[in-house]
Nucleic acid binder design. Structure first.
Lengths: 241, 241
DNA sequence: CGCCGTCTTGATTCTGTTCAACTCTTGTGG
DNA sequence: CCACAAGAGTTGAACAGAATCAAGACGGCG
């Protein structure tokens, strides 16, 4: 792993740090000049961030590095991953609904930049650059969530897994695709269970559509062949909303 | 049905009409003074509206009366309803992704107000009232979509139907709940098929949790009893995001 | 009255889950 | 360096839930 194996939190730093933030295309660069509360989190796999309530929706997490998931759970413990978050994704802490039933969880070790814009709430309410950025964040997440709904509602297990593998591959470009999450995480994202994921992966391996180097690395020799088995287009990196 | 059974479109009217628009809490009242292109659509059950492409996401549909659905479909025709739209809901035409695989469909007869703000695009880009309204629309839809994902991913058929009935009831308040959609529509919303929906409804009727007056009207004698069978809280009318 | 679309019900099939055992990898400590 | 433990992944057998296929019931409308 490329991140120091420390569970510690890097102490809060004041915003100018954003200027050196490696996060490409950060929607909040517009705020670089503002005195916002910023802090970096180093998360190890399994660590969680929970929003500390309040209405304003002005606490943001930006994934700088690694893969995380927006999770929900039911009273009886069933977990569902409602969104995968990767480098550059922005999560409005309230966006998923607050409460202990919603949290951000690191699937691999992660670096996350937290911005708390609450102190600026008043002026941001009429800041069109900020509002525009917020809208695009919500819109992008909405598009993904709706695709997720279609997938869960109407694709069978084989199609779900194939689409998932294909999508990850399309976003990675040619070459080896890293799958920075466990079988259980995949299952919770696809609405299946661990054993089913494992079995379906086995079938897909045997079919030759996908070749696994390790349980978390694979190659797709022919993405078009994967697409041909799906009733829907595979979102590409550029088109990824 | 309370809407004239005409398939016709009411001719385009200019915006001042918005002042007399019965749509409560319309997010676009802020624009009442602007010379936007507005038109009213009368839709009969099954009628569709498709966004006519373009990037800007400046075409909006506001449900004035009736129940509609944001639909998607796959190449092979499988349909999934990704969102139910009722009085007061606002749909950004591009929000669901454009193309013939995404459309708004009337589940009952509907009145829909269409606003095309494209001519105002330039000035709206820095109009904070507009941007704020857009954000809240997207955010509300996102919250619902994520709840939908959890439901489809982790609830079984009985829980899905119960939650659906409970939610509709909670939004209606006490008394008779109208179910303005067919079994097939319910199935497409819940990720099930028609027969399963019918069977589960039968089981729920027999259990006494819900009493049906007609196939499209029912009463929930004890909402708490319904909630007790679910692993998640039933969203109420006020809390409906 | 008879037709058509919707809804319901039944019998059967099949997909995915559950429960259980086993393997593989990785990391730890002797 | 090897033995061992713990977690992750895989595989199998039995089961349950939902889909499918098929038939019939109900209700509105010509």
């Amino acid at each position: 792993m490329s991140i120091a194996p420390l569970l510690s939190e890097i102490p809060p730093t004041i915003c100018a740090a954003c200027a050196s933030c490696p996060c490409e295309g950060c929607a909040f660069r517009v705020l670089q000049a503002s005195p916002v509360r910023q802090r970096a989190h180093i998360l190890r796999r399994g660590d969680r961030l929970e929003s500390r309530g309040g209405k304003g929706c002005l606490q943001f997490w930006i994934i700088v590095e690694g893969t995380a998931a927006s999770c929900t759970s039911f009273n009886d413990g069933r977990r569902q991953i409602v969104g995968l978050e990767r480098s550059g994704d922005v999560i409005c802490a309230q966006m998923a609904g607050s409460g202990s039933a919603n949290w951000l969880e690191a699937l691999s070790d992660c670096r996350v930049c937290e911005l708390d814009l609450t102190p600026l709430a008043h002026q941001l309410r009429s800041d069109s650059a900020f509002l525009s950025a917020s809208f695009h964040i919500a819109h992008r997440r909405l598009t993904r969530a709706q695709a997720h709904v279609s997938m869960l509602g109407r694709l069978d297990s084989r199609e779900r897994v194939l689409l998932f593998l294909g999508e990850m591959a399309a976003q990675t470009g040619n070459g080896v695709v890293a799958l920075p999450m466990s079988r259980e995480d995949i299952a919770d994202y696809l609405g299946l269970n661990t054993e089913t994921v494992s079995r379906i992966l086995g079938r897909i391996k045997r079919s030759g559509l996908v070749r696994f180097l390790t349980p978390t690395e694979y190659v797709v020799p022919d993405l078009a062949a994967v697409a041909a088995r799906l009733p829907v287009a595979i979102p590409t990196a550029e088109a990824r909303p």
